[in-house]
Amino acid sequence: MNIFRLTGDLSHLAAIIILLLKIWKTRSCAGISGKSQILFALVFTTRYLDLFSSFISLYNTVMKVIYIMCAYATVYLIYGKFKATYDGNHDTFRVEFLLIPVVLLAVLINHAFAPMEILWTFSIYLESVAILPQLFMISKTGEAETITTHYLFFLGLYRTLYLFNWIWRFYFEGFFDLIAVVAGLVQTILYCDFFYLYITKVLKGKKLSLPA
């Protein structure tokens, strides 16, 4: 464990909690892409199947359980409890255009052709594009609630910190996982224009509104 990975995990946890609280407190999921949240629940489900088969550390197990529980709670709030506030008209990204390439890639490019390993690879590839429906929805509505931008900032920051974690682990532990690094780079690059808007607008107290 290193400082980049720890702060990365805490940033990820912060993002998940911010979103859950935003929906719960405002009793509304306006501006939130339910499709992205379903993809994240799928990412955690396929990645954390080893929850029952291999014990790495208490921290690892506890965080995995929290992530999975929050992911499904968020999906439930969006499609169940606060379904009336779900903005389906703007959440129209065709997720099959993500799932099919990700499945193919996971089957073709992986570390080992074993079920658990292919599921893990699928999860890594899917996570790198899972935010696209959310970013697409913001571009369609042309704006985002400030709390939603904080959610996206911490979510983007988490994988950015993981990039530094991998540099650290390569240098100090000789650890290197090309699949995770390439997918993590793609994931972080997708946030670049959001980061720019967040830093130049939201941090200056303005509302995030895209040039419609």
Partner: peptide, 10 residues
């Protein structure tokens, strides 16, 4: 490659 890689990251 080990058949089941152990992934210790979240």
């Amino acid at each position: 490659h080990a058949l089941t890689m152990s992934h210790d990251e979240l």
